[in-house]
Amino acid sequence: MYRVVDQPTSAGCRTRRYPSDTTDAEWALLEPLLPRPACEGPAGGRPEKHHRRAIVDALRYVTDNGIKWRALPSDFPPWQTVHGFFTRWSKTGIFERVRDRLREKIRSRAGRNPAPSAAVIDSQSVKAAETVGRPSRGYDGGKKIDGRKRHIATDTQGLLLVVLVTAANLQDRAAARKLLPALHAVQRGVTWVWADGGYTSKALVDWAKDTLRITFDVVKKIAGQVTFVILPRRWVVERTFSWITQARRNVRDYERLPEHSATFINISMITMMTRRLTRRKKRARTT
């Protein structure tokens, strides 16, 4: 076990006790990617009362266990403090920046270009709790789900590039006209995008080509297919949705703001990538 020694605080230090807590290797990877505390900036300010590692551990705990903010265990900083970091870092795009740097590290380690040239997009409808207001929720008639829809783009390894959360009644073809420009804005090198049959539209294909210089390739089901078949490219993004929903906070949507739903998705992906980057390779058994 490690002990997280905070800066002077009445809470003292906390012992690693939850599966979601960062390991020393993970924290060494994450700490340089976080913004500098205000007290270290030119304007100065009061030192932060709670150590950043305790804040990150608390955010990962909420994401992994799906608890209410007010139910945060007492060995973490106060829930108001943790939620304050959550909202500030969400507004300033910190989680997206950390996610992108980790993805680049994984791609580089795999011998790939850090910036992808192809992507896969898909959507997932999830039920919404009563905390989700009517303006940002809807009914997906195809899936028969009242809630929200997550639209994501991943690289060919299934690593998240962008995420957009909308009401569940927004059609995939309409959402693609929002998702693809967002993808193009942050990944200019992406020139080929795969999607499933729900995105079938000649107008969308032509728009993507003429406006964004992206080849939009719809991977359709095999003719006569009646049982489950793994289709090229599409399975990658479907696996990513499986990774995302391993975090209980993402099984259902509880957030008042769609942006906060996207943040929890990013946190779950950040956790997955830090674990992958710091995982020790098993030694080959000798006979």
Score class of each variant (00 low, 15 high):
residue 42 P to L: 03
residue 258 P to H: 11
residue 29 L to A: 03
residue 4 V to I: 14
residue 115 A to K: 13
residue 126 V to H: 10
residue 259 E to G: 08
residue 41 G to E: 05
residue 147 G to P: 06
residue 49 K to G: 00
residue 195 A to E: 05
residue 286 T to Y: 05
residue 37 P to G: 12
residue 74 S to Q: 12
residue 17 R to P: 01
residue 56 V to E: 01
residue 47 P to K: 11
residue 6 D to N: 15
residue 7 Q to W: 04
residue 127 K to W: 02
residue 110 A to G: 01
residue 166 T to P: 09
residue 43 A to V: 14
residue 274 T to Q: 05
residue 8 P to V: 04
residue 12 G to E: 14
residue 221 K to L: 11
residue 252 R to V: 14
residue 274 T to Y: 02
residue 104 E to T: 07
residue 7 Q to D: 08
residue 140 D to C: 06
residue 196 D to V: 03
residue 97 R to Y: 12
residue 150 R to H: 12
residue 24 D to P: 07
residue 50 H to L: 02
residue 239 R to P: 00
residue 191 T to N: 00
residue 117 S to K: 00
residue 3 R to N: 14
residue 114 P to N: 14
residue 52 R to P: 02
residue 59 L to K: 03
residue 49 K to H: 04
residue 271 T to C: 04
residue 115 A to R: 12
residue 273 M to N: 04
residue 240 T to S: 09
residue 221 K to M: 14
residue 110 A to R: 11
residue 253 D to S: 09
residue 101 R to Y: 13
residue 14 R to N: 06
residue 121 I to V: 15
residue 182 A to W: 00
residue 240 T to G: 00
residue 61 Y to N: 01
residue 162 V to P: 09
residue 120 V to H: 04
residue 19 P to I: 09
residue 255 E to D: 14
residue 271 T to G: 02
residue 46 R to N: 02
residue 95 F to S: 09
residue 264 F to Y: 14
residue 7 Q to E: 13
residue 104 E to K: 15
residue 250 N to D: 04
residue 203 A to W: 00
residue 216 F to T: 00
residue 225 Q to E: 09
residue 17 R to E: 13
residue 77 P to E: 06
residue 279 R to Y: 08
residue 269 M to I: 12
residue 163 V to D: 05
residue 266 N to D: 06
